[in-house]
Design a protein around this nucleic acid. Structure first.
Lengths: 372, 372
DNA sequence: TGCCGCCATGTAAACGATTACATGAAGACT
DNA sequence: AGTCTTCATGTAATCGTTTACATGGCGGCA
């Protein structure tokens, strides 16, 4: 567009120059070589204090910022990290992303986001993007390597950079995994429901081949067993973590003659969609049926009734993944697996089943329905 | 780390080379010069069909991907766009982001995200980042230029690249603005409430200096006027678009002796938080009080009761902003302002006030409360 | 036929940093 | 005192493209 260039380059006291300041300009002003300037920035200990001071002053005076393209071309580093995720618009991910960005920023890395959106085309693009060296490393939230399915089928595209799996572990890959103990958490929730007296606890699943789903499902079964309850396949309802699938599961339940007294949904979205359907059909939560979620998204606390759920430390998960990747990028040793603690958050959507009704434990539960 | 290099470079038929393929390798294989390879990719019309075919074949055979750092260094283009936003974890933004990413991807651009998180430090960093030429352009969702306040105070950092303002217009800046007509939308909602018979309509505001807030507030007043209602400052409740501020506004209302019959919240988050508080206090929505939101986020449809609100075409807003920026980047003319249409979404949280109660219009409204 | 211009291509000079290697000075050690 | 390190610094090659300029061939037009 504007190729006029050099015009706006006064050679008076070069303060408000428009053309980019180069390392040479700094070097000249500080009366050292470009090598010294570069070193003063990259490895200060290799430069005499006096020289460094002059360089820093010159940098301050000129407002010099290293050209990242040049730096990257020469040093083969981009100070950029790719974050791959299946759906950017999902509330659950955005909080995690925040943790990632935060930590990356602290370490001087930028974050590039790739929202795969289920498109193999996009995936291929980003695989190329990645191997083309546009980023130093990547954090995978999508549960599989480039070019593979979730089950590890297909040959993983050979990516020559460090990778980290976040949330959805990738068992077939030899890369660090940052996650929660989904199995234990699901077991805990199931036992919580059982401990209140529920003997018929339904389970709304995630997508079939999802590793989170597999783990949580095992946890559900663990929990039943620990509580001495038997597993009933009829109580497993298919879902995919979306609000809509929660609504569908709710419709299924409503249509049943014999309903469970509690439903454990493996995502808050599903729990909210399900509750909504139950309420619309005239069922009361938790009086007629208890509903539990998973994740503790923002809206869980203001759902009606407020949702009992499992809290995942989302921001910390993001930060941890970023930290591990940074360690990797900087050649430091890093743990192969990090498991962060979850928390059982008890709110109003779960209560003992009606037949063993006791005094309602929690605060404002359902008070809206019975104006005193 | 691994500086061994060149070892794994067979000079037999160089098919499975590990070291990066360079443009030279392609040129050699296609028996042309590097310039021709470059041209075959960048401007195919300048290369003979035969040469182009040979080049493409060679590229396919070698799996060549241009080195972005080198390309960027030489051409001063990064094919990267910065998206600046105040809070990544906000549901509202993530859907917009998706539209942005989608469109950028189509045009071959990558997206870098900067979550300012209210930190001036981060803002300064990204200002430097931007002027250092790490991106070709930026989309601003945060309502102000680098170095300025929302009110246009302070001197905007001179950024030498195209900018686009998305959602939150930046009046003081001469850059394209992509937005909705907030004033008209707010007016429409207010009139909708009035048309149902509400004469006392409260307003829960956004943050004071926010331009969206200013516009929506004007729209609220327009709507009152159009409906022949007078403006009552006592009915304006402070908010900041968060769930929590909605909860607070709700508490305020609950505490009042004389309550409005309808509340217009300028974000769905606030509406959901407010409804929750009203319900907990034993008030019924919409029977006792109608509640309207703004944005139509995912959870609006499954709130209890389902929320009447204004739908913003979020994905399209994102796409439009990206399109305009791309036009700018590629030297094409672009509109200075785009206003996308909003839609009044009528659900169950709004009904005529009790004293002129008619047959309830909508489907499943409140049916949960009265099991037939 | 002769000249002009166009077209496809090649050659080589940037782009702006990092960094291997060379250099010279200043202690350290025998 | 002479040599050997060590240290701070400078010189210049290098990263892999894009692209201005040069070149040669070919067809069109007078």
């Amino acid at each position: 567009m504007d190729e006029s260039g050099s015009l706006d380059r006064p050679d008076g006291d070069g303060a408000p120059v428009h053309r980019t300041v180069r390392i040479q300009d700094v070097a000249k002003l500080a009366d050292v070589s470009t090598a010294t300037v570069s070193r003063a920035l990259a490895s200060p200990e290799k430069v005499s204090p006096e020289a460094r001071a002059r360089v820093l002053e010159a940098i301050a005076k000129t407002g010099y910022v290293p050209n990242p393209a040049a730096r990257s071309l020469r040093s083969q580093k981009t100070y950029m990290v790719l974050v791959v995720l299946p759906d950017l618009s999902n509330t659950f991910f955005s909080k995690i992303l925040r943790g990632v960005e935060e930590r990356l920023f602290e370490a001087g890395y930028g974050m590039i986001i790739s929202d795969l959106d289920g498109s193999p085309e996009k995936e291929a693009h980003f695989a190329a993007f990645t191997s083309a060296g546009r980023v130093d490393g990547a954090i995978l939230l999508n549960g599989h390597l480039f070019g593979q399915t979730r089950d590890g089928e297909g040959t993983a595209v050979k990516i020559g950079i460090p990778l980290v799996a976040l949330c959805e572990a990738i068992p077939s890959a030899d890369i660090p995994q940052i996650e929660i103990d989904n199995r234990a958490a699901a077991s805990r929730m199931t036992q919580h429901l059982a401990s209140l007296g529920h003997r018929s606890i339904a389970y709304v699943s995630g997508p079939a081949h999802n590793i989170l789903e597999k783990e949580r499902f095992l946890g559900y079964q663990d929990g039943l067993k620990a509580a001495g309850l038997s597993f009933d396949p009829a109580l497993v309802l298919p879902g995919d973590y979306t609000i809509e699938s929660g609504v569908r599961a709710g419709q299924d339940l409503v249509a049943r003659a014999k309903r469970p007294t509690a439903v454990f949904c493996t995502s808050d979205e599903m729990a909210i969609g399900l509750m909504r359907t139950l309420l619309s059909a005239g069922l009361r939560v938790p009086d007629d049926i208890s509903v539990a979620g998973f994740d503790d998204i923002e809206f869980a606390a203001v759902a009606e009734p407020a949702l009992t759920t499992i809290r995942q430390p989302r921001r910390e998960l993001g930060r941890a993944a970023a930290s591990v990747l940074i360690d990797l990028l900087q050649g430091r040793p890093s743990p192969k697996r990090i498991r962060l603690e979850t928390e059982l958050v008890i709110r109003d959507s779960v209560a003992p089943p009606q037949n063993i009704e006791k005094a309602p434990a929690k605060s404002t539960r359902r008070s809206a329905m019975k104006p005193t």
